[in-house]
């Protein structure tokens, strides 16, 4: 099962390696990861997506909480959070496919961020399904380069209201 957790940590050298080491030491694969400082520059937030059974994820969360530099761990469940990733993708843009690419860009509300005689570089933000749909449509044109961020997540507000 896929799990999404966020980890609030001290923004210090070595903290990422402590967290990553915890996963690798227990044979757990980090599927995606994003890290950046919070509004308080002394803290960072990591968002980690991973796969594993529930017992293992419980153990990982306890182990994360045990790290001195970890302040808070949140395990996101169900649909009560918004999740976004971003991709940058460079596709071949030949005479006969340029229009089709721009139409796909339009449908997905993506952006063209760089243009050359042979290629377009596109940017798209969204949830995983959307990004995957976009890539599937572009694949036939020939993808030259591709990069994708880890997920970032935030809790939905109505969850709190419902409580």
């Amino acid at each position: 099962m896929r799990h999404v957790i966020s980890v609030l940590v001290d923004n210090e050298a070595g903290v990422l390696s402590r967290v990553a080491g915890l996963f690798s030491g227990r044979g757990f694969n980090i599927e995606s990861l994003s890290v950046a400082p919070t509004l308080n520059p002394e803290k960072s937030k990591m968002v980690i997506t991973t796969r594993g059974n529930n017992e293992l994820i419980e153990q990982i969360i306890k182990q994360l909480n045990k790290l001195i530099n970890v302040i808070k761990v949140v395990h996101y469940k169900g649909k009560e959070f918004v999740e976004r990733e971003m991709i940058l993708v460079k596709v071949n843009a030949r005479e006969d496919s340029r229009a089709e690419i721009l139409r796909i860009v339009d449908i997905f509300r993506a952006k063209v961020v760089d243009v050359s005689p042979k290629s377009y570089t596109l940017e798209l933000t969204g949830d995983r399904d959307k990004l995957e749909g976009f890539i599937d449509l572009l694949a036939p044109m020939g993808i030259v380069d591709f990069v994708r961020t880890g997920a970032v997540v935030i809790e939905r507000e109505q969850k709190k209201r419902r409580l």
């Binding site: 050298a13 070595g14 390696s17 402590r18 080491g21 030491g25 001195i68």
Partner: peptide, 14 residues
Amino acid sequence: VVGITRPCTKHNYL
């Protein structure tokens, strides 16, 4: 040594 001992200390510092 901070890297080497990370998995076998409760915590470590440089």
